[in-house]
């Protein structure tokens, strides 16, 4: 791991030289640009490389999802309960992007109206999984779980890597039947 030596000017430790792991190292040349066939999603940027963005799900790895598949509404450990306490688990599989420090915007929309029920923007280093790079365990919190319970929703993701390459994907899925009280299968919705 590369080390970056910084002279921090922080209260109480002014002038202290400390070593921190450098998480902003540049991507290795050619990483992720493996020419794999685009299988979903869309992308933009230079025309020379094949880039794909694929929305999936999973908290321990990328799991593909099929159109119309039912995904559970998950309760996070902290949050607002019915409001901002639940999420659909997002994962992404990308090919052809710089995996370091990629900016991702997730959205969850009600399919019938395209009303946005969740938005989350983050920056992440992708991890290698097979011939692609993935991020998993993302959890954009839903404004009102009861507004998506047992409905078709759109899971959408937009990405922009450190080189400015962009892409997006969206999937129509069915949100789980209940915003369940943790440990039960009983909905918290009135």
């Amino acid at each position: 791991m590369k080390k970056l030596w910084l002279l921090l000017v922080l209260s109480g430790c002014s002038g202290t030289a400390v070593s921190i792991d450098d998480a902003s190292v540049s991507a290795d040349s050619g990483v992720g640009r493996d020419g794999s066939v685009a299988d979903s999603g869309s992308s933009s940027g230079d025309a020379g490389a094949v880039r794909t963005v694929e929305i999936g799900t999973g908290t321990t790895g990328f799991e593909p999802i099929a159109e119309g598949q039912t995904l559970p509404l998950l309760a996070g450990p902290q949050g607002g309960g019915r409001n901002y306490g639940y999420n659909l688990s997002f994962a992404l599989r990308l090919r052809g992007y710089n995996p370091r420090g990629i900016a991702i915007t997730y959205q969850t929309l009600v399919a019938s109206s395209r009303e946005v029920q969740a938005t989350q923007m983050l920056v992440y280093d992708l991890v290698r999984q097979g011939d692609a790079y993935v991020i998993y365990g993302s959890a954009p919190q839903i404004m009102d779980c009861c507004a998506v319970e047992d409905l078709d929703v759109i899971m959408r993701a937009e990405v922009m890597d450190a080189d400015g390459l962009t892409g997006s994907d969206e999937r129509r899925i069915h949100a789980g039947p209940v915003c369940a009280s943790p440990g039960t299968n009983v909905s918290i919705c009135p």
């Binding site: 365990g137 959890a139 919190q141 943790p182």
Partner: peptide, 8 residues
């Protein structure tokens, strides 16, 4: 990862 339960 605090959005997961348990967090990882």
């Amino acid at each position: 990862r605090l959005s997961l339960d348990p967090p990882t």
